[in-house]
Design a protein around this nucleic acid. Sequence first.
DNA 1: TTGTAGGCGTTATCAT
DNA 2: ATGATAACGCCTACAA
Lengths: 381, 381
Amino acid sequence: MLEKERGNAAQVALGGAGERARRQPLRQPSIKDIARLARVSHPTVSRALQNSPLVNPATAAKIRKIAEAAGYRPSAVARGLVTRRTRTVGLVVTTVADPFAGEVACGIEQAANDHGYAVFLANSNADAECERKMVQALAERRVDGIIVTSSRVGSDYLPMLAELNVPMVLVNDQYPGEFVHSVMIANENGSRAATEHLIELGHRRIAYVGDRSGYQTETERLEGYKQALAAAGIEYAAELAVHGDGRPEAAVAAMDGLLKLADPPTAVCCYNDMTAMGAMRAIRTRGLRVPEDVSVTGFDDLFFAKYLEPSLTTVRQPMRRMGQMAMENLLKLMSGEDSVAQVKVEAELVVRGSTGRAGANPGLKVETGGTRASGAGRRNG
Amino acid sequence: MLEKERGNAAQVALGGAGERARRQPLRQPSIKDIARLARVSHPTVSRALQNSPLVNPATAAKIRKIAEAAGYRPSAVARGLVTRRTRTVGLVVTTVADPFAGEVACGIEQAANDHGYAVFLANSNADAECERKMVQALAERRVDGIIVTSSRVGSDYLPMLAELNVPMVLVNDQYPGEFVHSVMIANENGSRAATEHLIELGHRRIAYVGDRSGYQTETERLEGYKQALAAAGIEYAAELAVHGDGRPEAAVAAMDGLLKLADPPTAVCCYNDMTAMGAMRAIRTRGLRVPEDVSVTGFDDLFFAKYLEPSLTTVRQPMRRMGQMAMENLLKLMSGEDSVAQVKVEAELVVRGSTGRAGANPGLKVETGGTRASGAGRRNG
DNA sequence: TTGTAGGCGTTATCAT
DNA sequence: ATGATAACGCCTACAA
């Protein structure tokens, strides 16, 4: 439409209050512009726009009308500079493309948005150095707080925390320790429940396909598995506890190794749903069936779990809710409350079609899985 | 000039220059603080930190050392205020928990990060009003650009674009029209390829399970399906084209309706992988098998597609790459280049186990799917 | 090579 | 109820 009229739409619409054209990236109207148009001082405009009671209702209305007409939008950056609070938080994840991280991010974003906060997204790609850089970058952006999800360098945050002096909340992170605030799932309980479920179904030879060893989440889930075995008087066999990397590809290989054992397992407890997905593929590829030949459990209850064939018995994490809780904790921290600390979220076993009685191998059965779920531990959502 | 020596961590660490404690949110050191410590003026510090050649290497080194020791971090907000460029972009998605959006977001974040930009995440929850609000909020944050993914109100952005005067790039959006910049997948081609594949396998009675009707992406994919039918001389049957909502739950119901037809389809072309996942569930629930009884195709090639049983034949979208392209286009737009416009990305058929010859029903066959993929259209990644 | 003097768009602190 | 005036932390002239 108009070509050289760099004067922004607002000013043009108002009758060309712009004295001279700007070469700058098209300045948005400021309170000073509005003040000039309304024939008042900028502070008055500022007050009017904040619905301050200190301003005459009539002038306030007039100012708001003018601001509206001018397409005025307050600058959060200028406000942030003077108030020293940007109403911005940083979210560090390995990658949002990961379904778990996506769900958590969704919960965080929701809660943040509800409170007028914006969320900076930072992917660390599971690289510690990169992760550190991202946190630094967030600090430069002057975020009011930071949430780190599924980090593998959680312990490194303690010194950072002190240095950056920015409130932080960790979600399912590595060694949150005593000094930081966190939201964690009850890994041991969840994993134990899954394993107990398999034991109840008569399984004795139960394998575990984990994440890379050494991480807290992995260690805790493995521990839950061991606890359940011990409680049932089943001896832990090191050959049955193998490692993947939390992704299906590695799980295929790990599971295949288990199936090649002289005495292969009849059930497998997986670190997470992605791992379970890979394990199921490995089982099917060998011509075996789930759950008739091998029962499988996951962890997370990602959206696809109930749509796998058979649908996956898994341990549910309320991922969105956890994100929301993390954000709410962070909000408290940012407002000065130093009370909240470590939040432990209970995990819930969701029994579906991928687990069945040990030795229950009714020959050729085509309709595996489906909605065949026992009543126990059904999801409440 | 300033009599009140605001104490801060840096100064304290450097020898306790802070006279008295502050109740403020603990100010970070500024260039002025560094200047005082280095006994130079702030502009000199500013220049030194920007590696300006206008500053004496010796003093520059000294300044950098002091800044480092003081834990100085430049304030992006102050810089943004003066430069009028925040090096920040907004990303609007329905929800990052959606795998497609997550992948695109990942690509965007990557590219943004590579260029020193930070990404604001904004979930619209598929609500037009909310989406509009998020864009306004981003404008107040003074983002340099905005990317909108899978919006259903794409056309509404034209007026917004003019009003906000912020460069925008849309990814797989609704009616991008002539005036906005976009990255779109070749929906018709992709859908046509999938349908042609089914036709080549001998199918004649091919159904289509779409998204809610009226959206451009949906319309185009349906169109591709129709084109393939027409080219093969198969008459389009309205009863075989049904609607879901892009999510598995709705697809289960839609597919079930198709299976209840007097003359049910032997193949179904689905709007996306989520829909295909639901369709497969509906098929199995009825005691039918994929692909022996019904062949299924998806669209997207989400991470789980190859792990479904049978693995899903689908049309691949290079999602991360598309996000990256969108960001790169946005970078150009933000730097003033007004050249880039509508980018169309080719879709690639990936043949896997969920599609098979029509009428090829070899009785009870347990090992469905797996890695049984024909050579045609294999992914190159 | 360095320092001085604005100004970015707000809010905050005083006056009036 | 309103208006000057001064920050906030940085950058960019321009002056020295």
